[in-house]
Every structure is written in structure tokens, then in C-alpha cells.
């Protein structure tokens, strides 16, 4: 698959502080790529390099196979975390200005702008000043500014902050729609539930280093611990429990929950499969519940960062 963005061995220092240490990532075309990491990890530094706001000390960035150049500015749409608009400028005027700065012609920008204004039902805002709008309303305008020039690569830094749940959903749907129309999306956040929902790929940056990257599904596979949640109906709980204990590692068990006499988390020993576990249980009790525990993005995040020390 083609990669829309390739970052190769990028380093960035601010004085004696290292913001990025030899970072490489690839963003496949048409994917939603989650750029994750704790505060101050270096995400924004990397995004600024991709946007040519700052230059890397070392390393190369490729957009769509070409080395990053000035003209690639119009291929990228960027919604920064620290965002705002000119307060005393009118909405329509302002969006047209920013679109022209991205290289669009005025007439083209106007056409597209009307389309988006109608879509968001905000046509009557055209002559309002930003300072007359609420924060959420201004965010909508900002979103339009980001996507208006139909960039190949969209970079959203914490896009949902400042939106109420309804508008956040609206924006989320628009992001997915943009992906379906062919755009690739880099999505930087620490809200893990949205990562789970949206991202196909992730990269995790911590303390200036990339500590993890790949397809979200693969990473989950990699992080799973062969642990299963089991619910059982049986007569002699204690005997059964002891039998299981002698064969498998049990982490935590409960008795007599909602629809089971026993509920537990069992971890397979090396070389064993889930089939072994089911066969073992099948002879002794009625299985009401059997799920493999797949780590959430949140678990992976916390675990990976903790391991990184």
C-alpha cells in the first residue's frame, strides 16, 4: 500500500532539550493514523515539522513519495491544538483569506465555502465577527478552514476539545467521511476512546522517542496476554475452582455473579490454546461466558509508557 507520509529518522533539538529523537513513522494512504503520547512527548514538534513550521535538525519527510517542499503546504490541512481566528474579522472574509493563503483561488474558495456552510447550516454567519460566535461555533468555522482546500493529508491535534458531544460526533463523522473520500488523516490525541473508534494505525511517542507503532489490531494482538474471562455454572464451586487452579493461572475470581456461579480470569500457560481451555472446562461445567481479553488502546498506552520508564 502507498504511504501518504513517511518520516525518516527525524531529530529536533531546542537548545540542549531533545524534542524528537530519531523518529520514523509511515502513514498509509486512506488511513486514520493515531499519533499518541503523553503531554510533552514531542507530538506537536513532529506535527510542526510535517507542516514546515519548523525544520528538523536531521532526517527527511516525504509527502506522497516526494521530499517535503514549500508547495506541499496546500496538500496538508492542519487543525492545531492551540487554535483561534482573528476575532474582529468577519467569518466569510476570514475563511476566504485563510483559504487563499493555502493557495486556493478566491472563486474556488467561495464555492467550497458555501458548500460547507450549507452542510453545517451556518450560512447566516457569513457576516458575523468571530467574537460574536460561541466557542463551539468558532470551532466549526475552524474545522471548515482546515478541510476547505481538500488536502490529501489532514492533521488534527486534539480535534474534539471544545466541542459538545453532539458537535464532536458531527466532526467525527465528517473526519471518517473525508477518509472515505480518499484523504489520509493524522489524529493526535490523548482521548483513547476516540482512538479506539477511529484509528487504523497508531504510533506512540514518549519522551521524544517512538516506543510503539503499527496497525492498531496488530498491536493489540501483540499486547494481549492470553487471558480469558470465563463464566461457569456448576454444583461444586470449590472443587472446580481448585481443579482449574491446578491447570491454569487464575488471577481473580468471583462467586455467584449475575448469570454464573463462578466468574474468573484465566491465563493460558505456554503452548496452550483456547481450545485446550474450553475442552478442559466443557467436561466439568456449563460455560456461560468465554471471552478473550483484548487490551484497550488505553491499556496499551499506559503499559507502554510505564515500560518506557
Amino acid at each position: 500500500m502507498k504511504n501518504i507520509l513517511t518520516v525518516e529518522n527525524v531529530c529536533k533539538n531546542y537548545g540542549s532539550f531533545t524534542a524528537l529523537n530519531n523518529i520514523s513513522i509511515t502513514v498509509p494512504q486512506g488511513s486514520v493514523f493515531g499519533l499518541l503520547g503523553p503531554n510533552g512527548a514531542g507530538k506537536t514538534s513532529l506535527i510542526r515539522i510535517i507542516n514546515q513550521i519548523t525544520l528538523p535538525d536531521k532526517g527527511t519527510v516525504f509527502i506522497d513519495g516526494e521530499k517535503l517542499q514549500q508547495r506541499h503546504i496546500q496538500d496538508i490541512g492542519y487543525l492545531p491544538e492551540e487554535r483561534g481566528l482573528y476575532k474582529s474579522m468577519k467569518v466569510g472574509e476570514q475563511v476566504l483569506y485563510l483559504a487563499q493563503l493555502k493557495g486556493m483561488s478566491k472563486s474556488e474558495a467561495k464555492k467550497k465555502l458555501l458548500y460547507w456552510f450549507e452542510k453545517f447550516e451556518i450560512t447566516d454567519w457569513w457576516n458575523k465577527k468571530i467574537q460574536e460566535l460561541s466557542k463551539g461555533m468558532a470551532q466549526k468555522v475552524q474545522f471548515i478552514v482546515t478541510v476547505l482546500h481538500t488536502p490529501k493529508l489532514l492533521i488534527f491535534d486534539e480535534p474534539f476539545s471544545g466541542f459538545d458531544p453532539i458537535n464532536a460526533n458531527l466532526i467525527k463523522d465528517e473526519i471518517l467521511k473525508l477518509r472515505d473520500e480518499g484523504a489520509s488523516i493524522i489524529f493526535s490525541t490523548h482521548r483513547m476512546e476516540s482512538v479506539e473508534e477511529l484509528c487504523d494505525y497508531i504510533a506512540l511517542i514518549d519522551k521524544s522517542n517512538k516506543i510503539l507503532d503499527g496497525k492498531l489490531g496488530d498491536i493489540k494482538q501483540q499486547f494481549k496476554t492470553n487471558q480469558f474471562e470465563i463464566g461457569l455454572l456448576c454444583n461444586d464451586k470449590t472443587a472446580l475452582l481448585n481443579q482449574i487452579k491446578s491447570h491454569f493461572n487464575l488471577e481473580d475470581h468471583k462467586e455467584a455473579t449475575f448469570n454464573a456461579d463462578l466468574r474468573m480470569l484465566a491465563t493460558l500457560k505456554n503452548g496452550e490454546t483456547s481450545t485446550d481451555l474450553i475442552q478442559f472446562l466443557n467436561n466439568k461445567a456449563q460455560i456461560t461466558h468465554f471471552t478473550e481479553i483484548i487490551p484497550s488502546a488505553n491499556d496499551i498506552f499506559i503499559k507502554a509508557v510505564a515500560n518506557n520508564g
Binding site: I53, I73, P80, R83, G84, L85, Y86, K87, L98, L101
Partner: peptide, 9 residues
């Protein structure tokens, strides 16, 4: 007003 980052991108 924090528009600066949008513009210098």
C-alpha cells in the same frame, strides 16, 4: 487569539 499556528502552517 492563537490563529498564528494556522497561518504559519
Amino acid at each position: 487569539s492563537r490563529i498564528i499556528e494556522v497561518i504559519i502552517s
